[in-house]
Design a protein around this nucleic acid. Structure first.
Length: 772
DNA sequence: GAGCACTGC
């Protein structure tokens, strides 16, 4: 990246940088361009040497005489005045620069609102294709009535004239399916492939299927899709739909995207981590590849942010087809939103014309209790009130139960769907006329200082509330009932949800960017930069894992690790398994861990049986990691039996996913020259491999069953779902800590303290692990 | 002795 040159008079000289780097090496044993800049930045802003020390301590460095000396020296060496350069990376309060706004906006054309129903979120399986016409004819007609059709020529002209174009179009405008076809017809595919990225696998698959139908060719020939575990493309493929994460992976192997002539980033407003990283990389690629076209497509009307980021790229607007949605607020604040939501459902049911209801709730538990209360209430209704069919949907609901929301209901009855955020963007239910929105969701946040994740109920943003409201206006005019006052909507809600990249652990992103040769990540052009703290934490961990050397450069181990689509700690565990000759077992464990926490199933009323089944995999107090391996192996022995899963209270879907991941890992280890070897009877080898990845997650027993993490001391507890919950080993290594009612370690295995010094001598000293 | 919103590689 060539981003450093613009920093103006504050560009610090190389001698200063070298000096700081050397001091950091002495102090931390680790340095990198990012740390150097961080330290210099601190010193610039500080008012005294003590201030520098304070800030360094805040960041997590232990106080020492050396640290103080360093602070004094750096404070005196770095000139102290307020930086004149635009600090885009630090404060980003007001993004409205105003000046550079869309040169293109006066050229915007609106066409008449078409009311036809075709959809790029779409359901290709719809059997409702007119019998009188051939399938193809119908498709072509749809295509001519899409709002985008009238824009074809002016859109192509705009793409021709500008390297980067921001396209705004509501869902239903047809942009996802049509633009790549236009580009193909205009000859862009002669110079290279056209990629169109989607945040979700299903969207990539179904849109590709739709387009291949429209073009009347076999899916996988000229039009194909590529997602994890499934590459449906061939040498012929010129229109390639793919997930954004998949393109990022491809970029690691082809940093200039030489085989592509156009990249269209669709659904950019969703701001997934992958999309955000792609933004920065594409902006850079566009600088030295003048022949590549970048299209950023978003459904948010306010696209100025995208335009500003891409150096005032023009904005092109395409109208969509939306029915009006009437929004109602409560007159007074509601005390209990669940209660209020239930009352609202009943009121709509009794007083409003036909049409189904969608209620947004925060999670499974809430949905299930709402379901119970509703059932109870309607049981008291007389026969003159039509039937109310209650459906629920959340991602952990088994697939066969999920399908129920699409089943037809008796004529004259009404459906109410209790849903999590899954119904906000990922999944569309037809026939919804009423939306009830209490205005909350569960959101993950990540604290880089403690490395802890927590999932908390939070108010949604205005953007999110509008998206939810829009769900009622898809097939006809809709109504949305917001369970807050109009005033609190206006004043209390943020405009936008903070992008995921600012709420997540960045270790894996940072490793990828380092592989791509980004020297200094603090200067990387993020649209909304994550905090320096989060970036530095990621660098520190990568150094500890041996993925980066002392100077912040990627090592051989780092390259091996980057070969796996996993969290770097898991990747390191696999790389280390080569040494301990247990890669066969370790990739199973890695696959099971990366599936997450949805393997064991614990239905209401059957908890005792479920817990009993789960404990049967823990024989011998082997620890949770080995137990996961036992689960996988037992399942494999039954030839991947679904019945076996039911009997053992295990989620089939999760197991199948684990199998997919494991298969992929098995293929990948070869590429980084790791041999597939097993050591079924040597649990110690396996545990040592685990420790090689997770040594920074170690904890020792305190009094009364609580634990203290070794490196950055915190009090934590073994999660009750762990096989070791009643066992209290003196030393443990854990997969993660989550904050719920307490700080719980999830997935725990016993450890010998001397392993820590043996495996990570750069991280632990004897004094850290001496038994007190 | 307790709870997983949603994606993705």
């Amino acid at each position: 990246m060539s981003g450093d040159s613009k920093s103006g008079e504050w560009e610090c000289n190389d001698a200063l940088k070298t000096w700081v780097s050397n001091r950091l090496l002495a102090l931390l044993g680790f340095s990198s361009p990012e740390f150097v800049e961080f330290a210099i930045g601190l010193a610039k802003q500080a008012t005294s040497a003590a201030d520098v020390v304070g800030k360094l301590e805040e960041y997590g460095l232990a106080f020492s005489d050396d640290l103080y000396l360093f602070a004094e020296e750096i404070f005196s060496k770095v000139p102290w005045k307020v930086s004149p350069r635009k600090q885009k990376t630090y404060e980003n309060e007001d993004g409205t620069t105003g000046s550079g706004k869309a040169v293109f906006e006066d050229q915007i054309e609106f066409i008449k609102e078409s009311m036809l129903k075709v959809d790029d979120e779409m359901s290709i399986e719809s059997p409702q294709i007119s019998k009188a016409k051939s399938k193809l004819e119908t498709l072509h007609e749809d295509w001519r009535t899409l709002p985008i059709y009238a824009h074809r020529d002016s859109l192509l002209k705009a793409i021709e004239e500008h390297q980067v174009l921001v396209i705004v179009g509501e869902t239903g405008s047809g942009k996802t399916t049509q633009i790549p076809q236009y580009l193909h017809e205009a000859g862009y595919t002669k110079r290279g492939k056209v990629a169109c990225t989607q945040p979700r696998r299903f969207a990539a698959m179904s849109v590709a299927a739709r387009v291949s139908q429209e073009m009347d060719i076999k899916l996988g020939h000229e039009v194909g899709y590529s997602i994890r575990f499934e590459d449906c493309t061939s040498e012929k493929t010129v229109l390639k739909y793919m997930t954004d994460g998949k393109l990022l992976r491809e970029l690691l192997g082809e940093p200039d995207l030489a085989s592509y002539s156009v990249i269209m980033v669709d659904e950019a407003h969703e701001r997934t981590v992958s999309t955000d990283v792609l933004f920065g990389l594409l902006k850079d690629i566009a600088r030295f590849r003048k022949d590549i076209k970048i299209l950023i497509s978003s459904a948010t009307p306010d696209a100025s942010k995208f335009s500003d980021f891409f150096d005032c790229a023009p904005i092109y607007r395409i109208s969509g087809r939306r029915y009006p949605v009437e929004i109602q607020y409560t007159k007074a604040p509601v005390a209990d939103y669940l209660d209020a939501a239930i009352v609202a459902v009943l009121q709509i049911h009794v007083t409003q014309p036909p049409g189904d209801i969608l209620v947004f709730l925060t999670g499974q538990e809430e949905i299930e209790s709402a379901e119970e209360i509703l059932k109870h209430k309607i049981s008291g209704f007389g026969s003159e009130i039509p039937e109310l069919v209650i459906c629920k949907i959340f991602s952990n609901l088994p697939a066969e139960l999920q399908a129920k929301i699409f089943q037809p209901i008796p004529i004259g009855s009404r459906k109410v769907v209790l849903a999590t955020n899954i119904a906000e963007a990922s999944l569309t239910i037809d026939g919804i006329n009423y939306v009830i929105d209490p205005g909350f969701c569960k959101m993950e946040s990540y604290n880089p200082r403690t490395g802890m994740e927590s999932l908390q109920v939070t108010s949604i943003s205005k953007a999110s509330a509008d998206q939810r409201a829009g769900r009622s206006g898809r097939t006809g005019p809709g109504k949305c009932f917001r369970l807050c006052t109009a005033d609190s909507y206006k004043t209390k809600l943020d405009d936008n949800t903070p992008p995921e990249i600012q709420r997540t652990n960045l270790t894996s992103v940072v490793l990828s960017l380092k592989i791509l040769g980004i020297q200094n990540l603090l200067n990387f052009d993020f649209m909304d930069p994550p905090s320096n703290e989060a970036l530095l934490k990621a660098l520190e961990l990568l150094f500890a894992l041996g993925a980066l050397n002392k100077l912040g450069e990627v090592t051989k181990v780092g390259r091996q690790m980057a070969g796996f689509p996993l969290d770097p700690m898991l990747s390191k565990m696999i790389v280390a398994s080569d040494k301990y000759k247990c890669s066969d077992e370790v990739i199973s464990i890695a696959a099971m861990l990366s599936v997450g926490n949805s393997i064991f199933y614990r239905p209401k009323g059957e908890q005792v049986h479920a817990d009993h089944a789960r404990m049967s995999f823990h024989t011998g107090n082997v620890g949770d990691h080995i137990a996961l391996m036992n689960v996988y192996n037992s399942w494999r022995e039954t030839n991947y039996s679904t019945q076996w899963c039911y009997e053992n209270y295990i989620q089939v879907r999760s197991m199948r996913r684990a199998r997919d991941i494991r298969d992929q890992l098995e293929r990948l280890i070869e590429r980084v020259e790791i041999e597939l070897t097993g050591c079924p009877n040597d649990l110690q080898a396996i545990k040592k491999a685990i420790t090689s990845g997770f040594f920074s997650h170690s904890a020792r027993l305190q009094n009364y069953g609580s634990y203290r993490t070794v490196k950055h001391p915190r009090i934590v507890h073994i999660h009750p779902s762990s096989g070791l919950a009643d066992n209290f080993p003196r030393w443990v290594v854990y997969h993660e800590v989550v904050l719920t009612t307490k700080e719980y370690m999830r997935n725990v295995t016993e450890l010998k303290p001397q392993w820590l010094v043996e495996i990570a001598p750069h991280y632990y000293q004897m004094k850290d692990v001496e038994d007190a």
